[in-house]
């Protein structure tokens, strides 16, 4: 579904991501792990064309989409949820959902898509008039996912989806990502909560100094002593 070849990306003149190759298939959850500064977030921003300084190849469903803008990428089915809270705090839940379908010009289709997301995330249905700023962290994450799903993307990229969430909510978020993958989407995420993320993933990629040092099945990475020592705090 999503194929990256030789991606280099960075800020100013400095390349943080230095020639990464990776593939994510439909129905698959892939987690990128690595230490702070390894280039995980830069990798996702580079794929989503949110950085000026980037080179390489990005293919979506066999089509070269490297040069497409972030808006056009979303239109083709590649969605990105950035790190931290990315809801619009001063907009209501309903307005946030409508903004999720900003590219949809058909109001009937937009309403149908939003209704579908309210069925998938029923807790949001009772909060439509609330400002997003007043939601709990877990509710905001649900809103981000629901807002993203309004466009029915084929690939969803998430930067640290568990950050700042209570453990119970983290479980819900990862369960939701598994459900989305089971529905045929490809999920690529960056996570610091390595153990839990790999448990919810099919494959993992270890990023070191901007390069993919290791790619393997998630279960294999969970059992890898070096990975456990470096990224899961095991002594």
């Amino acid at each position: 579904m999503l194929s990256i070849r030789g991606l280099r990306a960075g800020y100013g003149g400095r390349m943080i991501v230095d020639g990464v190759d990776l593939d994510v298939a439909a129905g698959e959850v892939v987690t990128v792990i690595g230490q702070n500064g390894a280039g995980k977030s830069t990798l996702l921003k580079g794929i989503a064309n949110l950085l000026r300084n980037r080179e390489g190849a990005v293919t979506l469903d066999g089509e070269n989409v490297f040069a497409l803008s972030a808006q056009d990428l979303l239109g083709r089915g590649l969605a990105f949820i950035p790190q931290g809270r990315s809801v619009f705090p001063g907009l209501t839940v309903a307005e946030n959902l409508r903004m999720g379908g900003f590219l949809l010009r058909d109001p009937v289709l937009l309403r149908q898509r939003i209704e579908a997301q309210l069925e998938a995330f029923p807790a949001l249905a009772k909060l439509l008039g609330q400002l997003a700023a007043n939601l709990s962290g877990g509710q905001q994450r649900q809103l981000e996912l629901a807002r993203t799903m309004v466009m029915q993307p084929k690939v969803i990229m998430l930067d640290e989806p568990s950050i700042g969430l209570a453990p119970q909510v983290v479980e819900q978020v990862f369960a939701t990502l598994r459900t989305l993958a089971a529905g045929g989407r490809a999920v690529l995420m960056v996570e610091q909560n390595v153990r839990r993320a790999l448990q919810a993933s099919d494959r993992g990629i270890v990023l070191e100094l901007g390069r993919a040092r290791l790619q393997d099945k998630a279960a294999a990475l969970l059992g890898d002593e070096r990975v456990a020592r470096l990224y899961m705090g095991k002594r």
Binding site: A48, L50, A70, Q71, L74, G75, A79, F80, I81, P82, S86, V87, F88, P89, G90, L91, E95, M99, G100, F102, L103, R147, M151
Partner: peptide
């Protein structure tokens, strides 16, 4: 209004 609150989030929803 969305762009005034979070420009990066605005970009990722297609604005």
């Amino acid at each position: 209004r969305a762009a005034s609150q979070d420009l990066q989030a605005a970009r990722v929803v297609g604005i």
